[in-house]
Simulated scan of single mutants.
Amino acid sequence: MSNRTLLLQAVRLAQAGDWHAAHQIAQAYSDPTANWIHAVLHKIEGDRWNSEYWYARTGGHQYADFDSDSAAELDAIARWLTPE
Rank of each mutant, 00 (worst) to 15 (best):
S2R: 14
N3F: 09
R4V: 13
R4K: 15
T5N: 12
L7D: 08
Q9W: 03
A10C: 08
A10K: 05
V11A: 07
V11E: 03
L13A: 08
L13M: 12
A14D: 10
Q15K: 15
A16E: 13
G17Q: 07
G17F: 06
D18I: 05
W19V: 08
W19E: 11
A21N: 12
A21V: 01
A21F: 01
A22Y: 02
A22C: 07
A22E: 03
H23W: 09
Q24F: 05
I25C: 04
I25H: 04
A26N: 11
Y29F: 15
S30N: 14
S30Y: 09
T33Y: 00
A34Y: 09
A34S: 13
A34I: 10
N35K: 14
N35Q: 14
N35D: 05
W36G: 01
I37W: 01
H38D: 02
H38K: 12
A39D: 02
A39F: 01
V40N: 02
K43Y: 00
K43T: 01
K43W: 00
E45F: 04
E45N: 11
G46H: 08
D47L: 02
R48M: 02
W49S: 11
N50A: 06
N50Q: 08
S51R: 06
W54S: 00
W54F: 11
Y55H: 09
Y55M: 08
R57D: 00
G59M: 04
G59H: 05
G60M: 08
G60F: 04
H61R: 13
Q62K: 15
Y63K: 06
Y63I: 04
D65F: 05
D65N: 10
F66C: 09
S68E: 15
D69Y: 02
S70L: 00
A71T: 12
A72S: 14
A72Y: 02
E73S: 04
I77Y: 04
T82H: 03
T82Y: 01
P83F: 05
P83I: 08
E84K: 10
